[in-house]
């Protein structure tokens, strides 16, 4: 059958006046992430810490039932803001978040640069803002599953296991802290991943950079601290800065004796830098001057 005989019919539908024009980008981004073989393996494992911490909350309410597990005295497992802070800001979860970001974020822009697909996006009725929102929301989805969702679930389950609102009345601000911290850390990692993703067309290099800069910044802090014994070098570490701000948000002692505002400023500066680079790198057409 020749091409012409197949016919072409005009579409008689109507375009939607979409309030979320970026949503298809997010949906496809999430879908493509779940198609990755290793991510299918990694994702359930990434939720293990949350399950362990949730079990801890359950055990804390049923310590008497678990007496047989302990030889001498029953340990005190206290569920308080420190417990939430431990889950959300400790190195293991941040490490898992970095790996999740590598899976879902490394190719978000680099693939579009490599395959010249930015012009396909921007030849559609999309603003640059929509493109960024769509891409960012992919990272937000996965990071919220690791931070916001478990944090709020812990809070709710604590009250359900306790059968009272005592915990809520003791720490009414805690859900807000969970939300604030999750938003902050997710926003940071989103900017961080998109920024690096926009720097190279090869997603493997991007993945190495995302991981390398995160780990490297920590190593750099250790080296400088060992040489100069100055805590201000903790500002060089991404992990250190997130933990500083996290501790402040959960009203806990900060891990380094410097003001947490400085760490917040460092994280904000990285986000601002990322934004400027993204704005410059992402456009419908590559301009060679």
């Amino acid at each position: 059958m020749t091409i012409k005989e197949k016919g072409y019919a005009h579409w008689d539908g109507e375009f939607l006046d979409k309030k979320l024009p970026w949503w298809p980008i997010t949906r496809y981004g999430i879908k493509l992430t779940f198609r990755k073989k290793f991510f299918k393996l990694f994702f359930p494992m990434s939720l293990l810490p949350a399950v362990v911490f949730l079990a801890g909350i359950y055990v804390s309410e049923r310590l008497e039932d678990f007496k047989f597990l302990f030889r001498d005295s029953v340990p005190i497992l206290q569920i308080d803001p420190a417990y939430f802070k431990t889950y959300l800001t400790e190195g293991f979860l941040l490490f898992i978040m970095v790996i999740a970001v590598i899976f879902c974020g490394s190719g978000l822009i680099s693939d579009d640069l490599k395959h010249n697909s930015l012009q396909l996006y921007f030849s559609r009725p999309l603003k640059k803002r929509d493109y960024f929102l769509g891409k960012t929301a992919v990272i937000v989805f996965f990071l919220f599953l690791l931070t916001l969702v478990p944090g709020l679930v812990f809070f709710i389950m604590k009250m359900i296991f306790a059968g009272s609102f005592k915990f809520f009345l003791s720490y009414p601000w805690l859900p807000l802290s969970v939300i604030a911290y999750s938003v902050l850390v997710t926003a940071f990692f989103s900017f961080y991943a998109l920024f690096i993703s926009s720097l190279n067309k090869n997603r493997r290099y991007v993945a190495i950079l995302i991981f390398g800069i995160y780990v490297g910044s920590d190593i750099l802090r250790e080296i400088f601290y060992d040489i100069f014994h100055n805590h201000y070098f903790s500002l060089l570490s991404i992990r250190g800065n997130i933990q500083q701000v996290g501790a402040a948000i959960f009203d806990q002692k900060t891990p380094y004796p410097i003001h947490w505002i400085l760490s917040l400023l460092v994280l904000t500066a990285i986000c601002v830098l990322a934004w400027f680079v993204l704005k410059k790198k992402v456009r419908g057409v590559e301009i060679v001057k």
């Binding site: 496809y28 395959h115 012009q119 396909l120 559609r124």
Partner: peptide
């Protein structure tokens, strides 16, 4: 466009429908 451009890991139907959706369909 003039250059080769596509969205990797998508089949042709998903690719075309994705861009249709981005057009507001």
């Amino acid at each position: 466009p003039e250059d080769d451009c596509f969205i990797p890991e998508l089949d042709a139907v998903s690719f075309t429908s994705y861009l249709g959706e981005l057009s507001g369909m």
